[in-house]
Write a protein that binds this DNA or RNA. Structure first.
Length: 862
RNA sequence: GCGAAAGUGGCGGAAUUGGCAGACGCGCCGGAUUUAGGUUCCGGUGGGGCAACCCGUGAGAGUUCGAGUCUCUCCUUUCGCACCA
């Protein structure tokens, strides 16, 4: 063993050994319990970022730990390879997305290997492989057959200059990111997946996922958003045009307070009004401007115009004016809402702004109401007032009575609605999975027959930012109708990349099968036992995967309802943001490494090293390319080695928390590696040690051994149950501090030391596998540490004769007293009251009460 | 705007089921060794008194023998909002 810790040399040697032995190639073995450990696969953006390192280190630690626990572990890796960045790179550099993507994959695969992750590379694939995406197409066709996939229109961001559809990310302050043109909403035909058919099941099944974080289940439940309410109609007869304006409300009890209705700009009545009024026309046109993003729509100023059209209140028959509101969305519910300014904050603001009447119709808990100022409790539940026949009824009573009356008139009924909307998967983009549809002038939209799959994406096209290059490529576009044989045109839209990531975990378990989407190997490995990925995916990706799995189930491809048994959502990796904002032009960001900074919080100031001039501090935020605040993990690995990078990524912070980057922390991790290395080296220099004889140890030896086995228990619990890798590492560091102080060269002392170091190295093996392997050999073990079992703590070593309990007087800490282990209340009480420090505060007062927490604490209440 | 989470020393964080606040690491201070170092080792380190004690977990209230932990209100930060992945 070398005296100096040389990580690069150790790591490449150990990695070569793993490769040669095929250590991480997983085989289906029904005789062993399986453990499928999966990290969210990366988008091949070019280089790994710190988020990847954190994610894959967590996965690798768990995979290696479970392997030590005797499980047959599968840890695969692949590439989420379709997507927008490849097209952007193409526009910038003129390189084909396929080429760019595959180059990036090659580079990032090398980076993953250098970090020493125990991945079964034999199962690797990229979602841009036709062998993979053909099954997207195949299942899409099954969904069409089952009515799960369907076609309708949807609204997109339209850049009128580039004549192209933009992603939300490409719209900045309502303008196209390349052209600066004002964005318009445009309605186009799209394919949808009917996820709402599964809304009920997706919501109910959240209760069957106890090993998912509570916060993720809550977010999903809110996203699916079941609302129990009433659907009601406002009939109208406008110059002989008869119809009903439909709205949905969860507050039918406030129906007598309706003073207006608001319709979306795309609503038929808005269109009708626009033909009659220039003001309405102008407003409807204005509503078409801007992006389709929910956050934009929700935060913009609420505006409206009256249409001069009136509908009738379904219960009173009173005339109610129709307004067009920019905050009402055609895509939600019925495209119109009833306005109750007395009991809805948004309606109140709208009514105040436009001078509409405000009618209070709910008496909340006897508190007085007024029409003057909004109070938050106006939206609370109470009893109906000024509501005619419903006066005095509570929410449930009023809702029932009103729904009954509406139903009798044929103007409404109770209804359950979901916030969840169907999943639009059509993208007007090149670098994605082609939607397998052929447009025939005679037969219409015809599905591509299974035996013609896959519809291959040509890989040599280079997008230029104006529209989809597939639409300009006759070799792709021109085809024959599968039904009638006539000349036809291929669909040029591709699928949302969330489709690709909704079932890749099944494919890892059926790798290479070119005849079926999944096979019996998936039945062995699935479900994923532990899934790990960023909290940013808490809703969409995870919900889509849960949906897709159910569709596969209904198609007979799996028996599972849920794909992921246990979920760990890691926090984001954050770094400081530094920028300059020129008087004109775009904001410019600078990497924190290039900024000389001082002060904290609001007082934080910095100057750019290169020019010495100030830059503005933008707080901390996620590492991102656009903000240029990323840290390249490769530099870490080159300088300190993979083990230090892994150790650093796991220490200091629990995995669910956001991780704030610090350069100094890395040094601490490296220092620890050197200390472990040194103490092992120093011990080995002293020659072989004998096995521990627990009975013949002196006090300090016994105490150290107790700490060793205590630490072993804690580390196992922290990794195996709590997933708090930071506290596991801290416990080993604490133990190492004790080992450093333990200078005992006697034969029993050396035995205790040998056992301690063996266990330290085993405990560290999942986190720093390369150094652990080298130290394991040095400690005299010929085996590969990756094949060792997780050690068991020696119960005899853990026994304690006396323990210390805390004594409080009136809840305040006053003393610590030793008592025999297992002392009962009487003994503890006597020991506590005998302590002079306690007696001083009791000071002869009668003890009113005494609380005893066995083995922990006595609280004397006087 | 809506949904979710977080806030504890100079900094990252620990405190697992309501029971010792500050484990571990970074930084800083002092000392030893080295004395050109990407060193290493030892000790100290929440604040105030510098003693016994008091104060202290974003702010304010509440429940409890006991609250960082539970409840309510507020503030700040981060994530998501359906075409970034």
């Amino acid at each position: 063993m070398r005296e100096r810790y040389e990580p690069n040399e150790i790591e490449s040697t150990v990695q070569d050994e793993w490769d040669a032995a095929g250590t991480f190639v997983a085989r289906e073995d029904p005789a062993k319990p399986k453990y499928y450990c999966l990290c969210m696969f990366p988008y091949p953006s070019g280089r790994l970022h710190m988020g990847h390192v954190r994610n894959y280190t967590i996965g690798d630690v768990l995979a290696r730990y479970m392997r030590m626990q005797g499980f047959n572990v599968l840890q695969p890796m692949g590439w989420d390879a379709f997507g927008l960045p490849a097209e952007n790179a193409a526009i910038e550099n003129g390189v084909a997305p396929a080429r760019w993507t595959r180059d990036n994959i090659a580079h990032m695969k090398g980076q993953l290997k250098s970090l020493g992750f125990g991945i079964d590379w034999s199962r690797e694939f990229a979602t841009c492989d036709a062998d993979y995406y053909r099954w997207n197409q195949w299942l899409f066709l099954r969904m069409l057959e089952r009515g799960v996939a369907y076609k309708t229109t949807g609204v997109v961001n339209w850049d009128p200059v580039d004549q192209t559809v933009l992603a939300n990310e490409q719209v900045i302050d309502g303008r196209g990111w390349r052209t600066g043109a004002l964005i318009e909403k445009r309605e186009i035909p799209m394919y949808y997946l009917r996820i709402t058919r599964y809304a009920d099941e997706l919501l109910a099944a959240l209760d069957a996922l106890p090993d998912w974080p509570e916060r993720v289940r809550t977010m999903q439940a809110n996203w699916i958003g079941r609302s129990d309410g009433v659907n009601l109609s406002f009939p109208y007869d406008i110059d002989g045009v008869r119809g009903e304006l439909k709205v949905f409300t969860t507050r039918a009890d406030t129906i007598m307070g309706v003073t207006f209705v608001a319709a979306a700009a795309g609503h038929p009545l808005a269109e009708l009004a626009a033909t009659r009024s220039a003001t309405v026309r102008a407003f409807v046109d204005e509503c078409r401007r801007g992006s389709v993003m929910e956050a934009d729509l929700a935060t913009m100023e609420k505006k409206g115009v009256p249409t001069g059209l009136f509908v009738r209140h379904p219960l009173t028959g009173a005339e109610v004016e129709v307004w067009v509101g920019n905050y009402v969305l055609m895509a939600y519910g019925e495209g119109a809402v009833m306005g109750v300014p007395g009991h809805d904050e948004r309606d109140f603001a709208f009514a105040k702004k436009y001078g509409l009447p405000i009618l209070p119709v709910i008496d909340v808990d006897g508190r007085p109401y007024s029409t003057g100022e909004w109070q938050p409790w106006y939206a609370e539940y109470g009893r109906c007032v000024h509501s005619g026949p419903y006066d005095g009824l509570d929410y449930a009573g009023a809702t029932n009575a009103i729904a009954k009356d509406l139903e009798a008139k044929g103007l409404g009924r109770k209804q359950v609605v979901w916030r969840l909307r169907d999943w639009g998967i059509s993208r007007q983009r090149y670098w994605g999975c082609p939607i397998p549809i052929i447009h025939c002038p005679a037969c219409g939209d015809v599905p591509v027959p299974d035996d013609q799959l896959p519809v291959r994406l040509p890989e040599d096209l280079v997008p230029d930012g104006s529209g989809n290059p597939l639409a300009k490529t006759p070799s792709f576009l021109d085809c024959r109708c599968p039904k009638c044989g006539a000349a036809a045109r291929r669909e040029t839209d591709t699928m949302d990349t969330f489709v690709d990531s909704s079932w890749y975990f099944f494919r890892f378990a059926s790798a290479g099968n070119d005849r079926a989407m999944v096979d019996e190997r998936a039945a062995y490995w699935m479900p994923v036992d532990q899934y790990i990925g960023g909290i940013e995916h808490a809703i969409l990706h995870l919900l889509y995967s849960r949906f897709w799995t159910r569709v596969m189930r209904d198609c007979g491809l799996t028996k599972l309802d849920e794909p992921f048994q246990r979920l760990l959502t890691q926090g984001m990796v954050l770094n400081e943001i530094w920028f300059r904002k020129p008087a004109s032009g775009r904001i410019v960001y600078f990497n924190p490494a290039d900024v000389e900074a001082q002060g904290e919080g609001d007082a934080r100031r910095g100057v750019l090293r290169s020019d010495g001039r100030p830059v503005e501090y933008g707080g901390i935020g996620t590492m991102s390319k656009s903000r240029r605040n990323g840290v390249d993990p490769q530099e870490l690995v080159d300088r300190f080695g993979a083990d230090t990078a892994r150790l650093f990524a796991m220490s200091n912070v629990p995995p669910e928390h956001t991780f704030e980057w610090s350069d100094e922390g890395v040094e601490g991790a490296f220092r620890f590696m050197k200390r472990v290395w040194k103490i092992v080296h120093a011990h080995v220099e002293g020659g072989p040690a004998q096995a521990v004889d627990g009975a013949s140890l002196d006090g300090p030896q016994r105490e150290l051994r107790r700490q060793v086995h205590q630490t072993l228990l804690k580390v196992g619990d922290d990794i195996g149950r709590r997933r708090t890798f930071n506290t596991a590492i801290a416990a080993v560091m604490e133990l190492l501090n004790s080992l450093t102080r333990f200078a005992d060269d006697s034969p029993p002392g050396r035995s205790v030391m040998q056992e301690a170091l063996d266990l330290v190295v085993l405990m560290l093996a999942p986190v720093v596998p390369h150094a652990a392997q080298a130290m394991w050999r040095a400690l005299g073990h010929p085996s590969a540490i990756v094949d060792e079992g997780w050690p068991k703590a020696d119960a005899a070593a853990l026994v304690r004769d006396t323990i210390e309990i805390v004594v409080q007087v009136n809840g305040r800490l006053r003393a610590r007293v030793p008592v025999p282990a297992g002392a009962d209340e009487a003994v503890a009480r006597e020991a506590a009251l005998a302590d002079p420090g306690v007696a001083k505060f009791v000071a002869g007062q009668p003890v009113r009460k005494l609380i005893y927490v066995p083995g922990k604490l006595v609280n004397v209440v006087v």
